[in-house]
Design a protein around this nucleic acid. Structure first.
Lengths: 145, 145
DNA sequence: GTCTAGACGTAATGTTATAACGTCTTGATC
DNA sequence: GATCAAGACGTTATAACATTACGTCTAGAC
């Protein structure tokens, strides 16, 4: 059994476990953020049965920057930007409240402002959450004048 | 019965309902963010019995900017800054993971950066969430070298 | 071979949030 | 003053999100 992970169409890292690969693969194919339970439902056929199996995989994936948690949604997305893997930098997300689409972007100036505020205040930052909720270009176009 | 809300030590607005006043008062006296269920527990003696009573009050209070929801904590704080009431501007929070203390601050430059990204992308922002998790000055001092 | 660290599986439970219903008060209108 | 609509309220039930606790299995270090 040389390759126990056969059948997958993409490899993100060489040392993911089976559950981690399944969860990341599910996120990668999704067009909108998925909750842990959404992911679980999509992986029942692969043998996953308990939330904890998903949460454990998500913990590792988010630690490594391969996936992100959207706090304002209690949901997860696949990382869209190879650059952000593992760096401590802040990533920002724009989340469409209508279609669910998420755009991931980095604004170094924002990161820098938050860090300078922290330094001035004596606060030692560990992680930053930056999320904008609203309507994406397409959804706002199909609604307003 | 000219004053049905007698017995409270502070008035934030003249048109809060009893439940809204109770919830806001509880948040105002807390030294750390409270979950809706924390608030409920502290208001049992006042007659509150169901989560929805608290959630409904919190909805109104956050709409008006009198309280804030911390997304990364699923908890709530009293607004610390009279200026931010009701304006659409983004407020940022630094949350100490050790002692729970929350510092609320405004960085207009961040707000401005996020808005300019939105404009450039065609995204129409409705609300922004900016939260830093880490250690406050005191807690980092009592831990580090 | 033995030990340990880490991933895993499972069951049970804890925590956060909302749906669905009917009632009550208030204020506008006729 | 009767009627009506809007909004806050109270209650029950349930949905959705997340973790604790426990035992097993495997791979690598020694």
């Amino acid at each position: 059994m040389a390759d126990s992970h056969a059948g997958h169409d993409h490899v993100w890292a060489d040392d993911l476990t089976r559950n981690q690969e399944l969860v990341l693969g599910t996120l990668a194919h999704a067009t909108a953020p998925l909750s842990a339970y959404d992911i679980l439902d999509r992986l029942r056929d692969e043998g996953l049965r308990a939330p904890l199996q998903v949460y454990r995989a998500l913990d590792k994936l988010t630690e490594r920057g391969l996936a992100h948690r959207l706090e304002s949604l209690n949901a997860f997305v696949c990382c869209a930007d190879a650059h952000c893997h593992g760096d401590g930098g802040s990533t920002a997300f724009a989340i469409c409240d209508r279609c669910g689409k998420v755009e991931e972007f980095a604004e170094p100036a924002i990161d820098s402002k938050l860090r300078s505020w922290s330094k001035a205040s004596g606060f030692v930052p560990a992680r930053m959450t930056i999320e904008i909720r609203g309507l994406c270009k397409e959804c706002s176009a199909s609604r307003g004048p």
